[in-house]
């Protein structure tokens, strides 16, 4: 597969765990380009510069310095970033947040009003399945 055809995924997390996991544990990661953003402003820049085919959001950004956090706290920063960047998300681009909505379907529905393509991941889901979901046509 040539570079032009590769899908581009944006991973927004306060470390490198998810990028590392995608890279080393999901064989399909060879077919995607992974962009990493440590906070909302970095993600905003990347979204402005690049077209992305999928976005993965961590929830807890406790390791991010407070001055780089969106107001409201680190514990649910992922939701705040999703909400803040929602206008930049291309329609149809899958947005996966590292949260299990099994007990909160109405919450997911409420969030989708602002981020329509938002999805959660059920606890125990392998990273390869997450990648699969992000790269699904």
């Amino acid at each position: 597969m040539n570079a032009a055809a590769r899908k581009v995924l944006l991973v927004i997390e306060d470390g490198t765990e998810y990028v590392d996991a995608f890279t080393r544990l999901a064989p399909a990661s060879r077919e995607v380009e992974l962009l990493a953003a440590p906070d909302a402003s970095a993600a905003r820049r990347l979204l402005a510069e690049r077209r992305v085919d999928g976005i993965f959001l961590d929830v807890d950004f406790s390791r991010t310095p407070a001055d780089r956090l969106l107001p409201g706290g680190a514990r649910d920063q992922g939701f705040r970033i999703a909400s803040a960047l929602a206008p930049l998300f291309e329609p149809g681009v899958p947005i996966v947040i590292a949260h299990d909505f099994t007990l909160e379907p109405e919450r997911l529905e409420a969030l989708r009003e602002r981020v329509p393509a938002l999805e959660g991941i059920v606890d125990g889901t392998p990273i390869s399945r997450v990648l699969e979901r992000l790269t699904a046509p």
Binding site: E17, Y18, A21, R24, L25, A26, P27, D60, A98, D100, I121, D123, G124, T125, P126, I127, S128, V130
Partner: peptide, 26 residues
């Protein structure tokens, strides 16, 4: 607990097992 074990454990373990079983450099 949920974040470390259930979410990250789930994300890593089964895929990690598959990669390790595949052998080689991976």
């Amino acid at each position: 607990v949920r974040h470390e074990a259930l979410k990250h454990g789930g994300l890593l373990l089964s895929d990690g097992a598959a990669r390790i079983e595949a052998g080689g450099r991976e």
